[in-house]
Each structure stands twice: as structure tokens, then as C-alpha cells.
């Protein structure tokens, strides 16, 4: 149940890339907790009472009443430039959630998991990776993360120098436009060969989570079906025009 709008205050922020920022928000009247993959509605209110609402994926498991979202700035957007560039610690907004009961990973599950993130579509997948660590899960995890260029990489340090709790997590970075020097794979969109090589075999019966822009989600989900994965075990989530998830 998403419940009511809850006041929240910005208690921390991290630049993740030149265009994306993680906001650490403390729900001042409490947060009911959430499952990895769920999202939250955010409401901003201007001085004159005008409001705007958007949905964002939760980027990390809750710590008490504190939640994290990662927001990608949409050029010309109404809400994301404020969240990425303007909002300062101590500023407030409202949150409602958690929302979404389908695109979620169950930390108690031992099934193998294949994650496919395109651009900021990695955000709910990162929540799953972090929840796996927090739950000390040993479930086999593969993350295929498609990103235009190295400077767009979110969670760079955390994905490169993985925490001890991340044993059993494999990460493959697929650059689509510009790759760091020495990268064996030439920059290209993720295709069936990448899904085959860097995902998990259909015979393992993994749960597959695919999140990103429509073209990415269509390509990866089609590739998974073509490779014999059960369509019922492929869960997708797409970006809307806002650049926010779904």
C-alpha cells in the first residue's frame, strides 16, 4: 500500500555523473520500507502552491527512514534539473510509496538473476545488487550495464571495486558510443550476442530484470526470448518521456 504523501528532507547528495545525482532523503514521519526494484512518487510544491509529481526508482535499500533515489537530468525537464542541480541539503519535498509490486527481486530467493540495465535503467537494478549484499544473499547475479560512454557510468566505484559481500556478482559494462581505451568490445548497442555471452543461460532458469529506454528493453527482452528464456521470468521496466523510470 503506497499510503499517503510523506514529508522528506534532503540529508545528503552525491554526484554520480555529470548529469545524474543521488539524493538521500529522510522521511520525517517514517518510511514503511521497500523491496528492491520498487519506486517512489515525488511531489514538489512551489511557493504559490503549484505542484509537480514524478516517479523515480529507489536506488538502495532503506536505512531506517532514509531512502535514496538517483535522478538523471533531462534537458529542458521540469523536475529533474531542480533535483540534480538546485535542491540543497535541508530542502524538502514529499514522497509516496513504495510503489510497484512486479519489478521486484526477493532477497530470500536463491534463483540465479540476470540484470540488464540501459543508462539510468541501472538504478532499480543497483537497488537489487545492494539488497543482495545487505541480505548476505549468495544468489548468482549477473549485471549487464549498457552505457553510452565512460563519463555516464553511475555507481562507478561501487561496481568497479566491489564490496566483499558482492562475491558471486558479475558485472559487464557494454559501451554503446565510446569505450575506454583497451576495451575489447567495440562500442555498440546491446544485442543478442551480448545477452548470450554475458547474461545467464536459459537452462539455469534465471529471473531476468530488464530496465532502460524502450529500444534497449525491446532488444534485450526479444533476445532473451530468442535464447529460450521463459517469457514469464522476464520482467521489464521502461523509461517514460521524463527520463524517470516507467
Amino acid at each position: 500500500m503506497p499510503g499517503h504523501w510523506r514529508p522528506a528532507v534532503l540529508v545528503g547528495a552525491r554526484a554520480e555523473s555529470p548529469t545524474a545525482r543521488t539524493l538521500v532523503l529522510k522521511a520525517e514521519e517514517g518510511w514503511p520500507g521497500h523491496r528492491p526494484g520498487q519506486h517512489v512518487d515525488v511531489r514538489l510544491t512551489a511557493e504559490d502552491g503549484y505542484t509537480a509529481q514524478r516517479s523515480y526508482s529507489l536506488a538502495a535499500p532503506a536505512v531506517g527512514d532514509t531512502v535514496e533515489i538517483t535522478v538523471q537530468r533531462v534537458p529542458g525537464g521540469e523536475v529533474s534539473p531542480y533535483l540534480v542541480d538546485e535542491m540543497a541539503e535541508g530542502d524538502r519535498l514529499e514522497v509516496r510509496g513504495p510503489l510497484g509490486g512486479w519489478f521486484v527481486w526477493d532477497p530470500a530467493s536463491t534463483d540465479p538473476v540476470a540484470l540488464f540495465g540501459g543508462g539510468a535503467g541501472v538504478v532499480p537494478l543497483m537497488c537489487m545488487v545492494r539488497a543482495r549484499r545487505a541480505a548476505r544473499s549468495r544468489a548468482l547475479f549477473r549485471l549487464v550495464y549498457s552505457v553510452r560512454a565512460p563519463d555516464g557510468l553511475l555507481y562507478r566505484a561501487e561496481l568497479r571495486e566491489r564490496a566483499p559481500g558482492d562475491a558471486g556478482l558479475d558485472v559487464f559494462l557494454a559501451y554503446t558510443r565510446t569505450a575506454p581505451e583497451g576495451t575489447p568490445r567495440a562500442p555498440a548497442r546491446v544485442g543478442v550476442a551480448d545477452v548470450n555471452t554475458h547474461g545467464l543461460p536459459a537452462e539455469f532458469g534465471p529471473m531476468c530484470f530488464v530496465c532502460g529506454p524502450t529500444g534497449f528493453v525491446e532488444a534485450v527482452a526479444d533476445a532473451l526470448v530468442a535464447l529460450g528464456h521463459d517469457p514469464g521470468r522476464i520482467r521489464t521496466e521502461r523509461f517514460g518521456a521524463s527520463g524517470g523510470p516507467r
Partner: peptide, 25 residues
């Protein structure tokens, strides 16, 4: 009125406003 987000201006619509349900963009 609810919580004010300091510094948030927003982008108000005009004629099309009446055709957009609450909470939508």
C-alpha cells in the same frame, strides 16, 4: 498547502491545463 520545496519554480501550463488530469505532465 503542503511542504514547499525551496527554489522549485515549476513550469505552469496554460490553455492545455484543463485537459491534463491532476498529477500528470
Amino acid at each position: 498547502m503542503g511542504i514547499i520545496s525551496r527554489g522549485f519554480g515549476g513550469r505552469r501550463r496554460t490553455a492545455e491545463d484543463a485537459r491534463v488530469p491532476p498529477g500528470q505532465y
